[in-house]
Design a protein around this nucleic acid. Structure first.
Lengths: 200, 200
DNA sequence: ATACGATTTGACCAACTGGTCAAACCAACG
DNA sequence: CGTTGGTTTGACCAGTTGGTCAAATCGTAT
């Protein structure tokens, strides 16, 4: 059963996780320090370690809590829905995650970039299984002629890539565009792009 | 004028930069250590610091040396060439960089992810200028009807995103696909995708 | 109020960090 | 051979790192 927690425990664990998200997403696991996380959280370092047994525990809990949220949009892809609309809705849900949770996106990107030492196993088991399942759905849609023929796995990679780019490379995108919020333009562009890719 | 260098200097500086590339691209700037770079290079730590004044100097030299190579494919986009072929060739050049220089790609990705503390300035000056120039070319092509209408800046972002994904998220791609080299599939997929996006 | 467990912290530690320095080493040229 | 300048290193340093611990403080149920 889940451990019983006091109000204070719940609040402080959340504060710490929020601070950890900020620091880990900007520095990666090795580059982040407990002192910095403690400062961000407004707690003393020993106090952090009263709520979490180690630096790694904070990081792991963040990543695992994140993964579900991150895959929900793909899970929601409905095999019985209209193919094109389902895929466009998936793109939009994924882009919304980038807009609303950029830190989470960068945390994940950092982990993968550094070789996925913590979640590598999960990627090749759970994630692979989910992707294979949804790729099969996409293949059926393509074979049916509901969408243009396309490699289902690479299509999924393309969706991930294009949507997460706006969170992960935010600094670059803004530097090139000037100061403007890139998301309105991104959304219109991506809808247009995927319509052209997928329309039979 | 460029500093005169002995044979040993040239060789050791290259060894150090190669080691630095490996370590920085896997850990980011803060996460990397001089000890680890020295170990990778097969040199002692004080010896590293005989060739470079600081950790940051190694990192900066790597990044700056990289940036030119990284932007060459975009520079080579020829306004007088046939639009679709030019853009498809650009995609292929960019994908080749991902295949042949994945460490360089990840080093760059790490720098951007962490807020581009070293090259932020260059992004909003040189990079922005280059992108604006090439975006204007693409706009003309679209207005001419040589390619389908598309937001030029976001098109460039899409090319960067889709091609670099296979280097930066290599671990994830391989985990999902199984062990296979993803690049042959990626190349065919991306050509198909950009043909559909750009064909008028 | 008081007693109890939950919470917080200052002091501390060993390992590691980027970096320094003087001394040793080495290659090549006269 | 010897000297000279480039090269290498062991010993060292001050600051930082993740983590520990006993003692102090707090909250609250009685």
């Amino acid at each position: 059963m889940a451990p019983t927690r006091t109000r204070i425990q719940t609040r402080n664990r959340e504060t710490i996780l929020a601070a950890g998200l900020t620091v880990f997403s900007g520095q990666g696991f090795r580059g982040a320090t407990l002192d910095e996380i403690a400062r961000q959280a407004g707690l003393s370092k020993p106090n952090l370690l009263y709520y979490f047994p180690s630096k790694e525990a904070i990081y792991t809990e963040l990543l695992e809590g994140l993964l579900d949220t991150w895959l929900d949009p793909l899970r929601a892809l409905d095999p019985s829905g209209p193919a094109l609309e389902e895929l466009l809705a998936y793109v939009e849900r994924k882009l919304s995650l980038s807009r609303d949770f950029p830190l989470e996106s960068r945390l994940f990107a950092n982990e993968i970039l550094q070789g996925a030492p913590q979640i590598g196993k999960i990627l090749s088991s759970d994630l692979k299984a989910l992707v294979d399942e949804k790729a099969a759905v996409i293949k059926i849609w393509a074979d049916d002629g509901q969408i243009a023929p396309v490699d289902p796995h690479h299509l999924i990679f393309s969706i991930w890539s294009l949507t997460q780019h706006y969170a992960d490379f935010d600094v670059q995108v803004r530097a090139v565009l000037g100061k403007a919020d890139p998301f309105p333009g991104a959304e219109a562009h991506l809808e247009q792009v995927f319509r052209r890719i997928l329309t039979p």
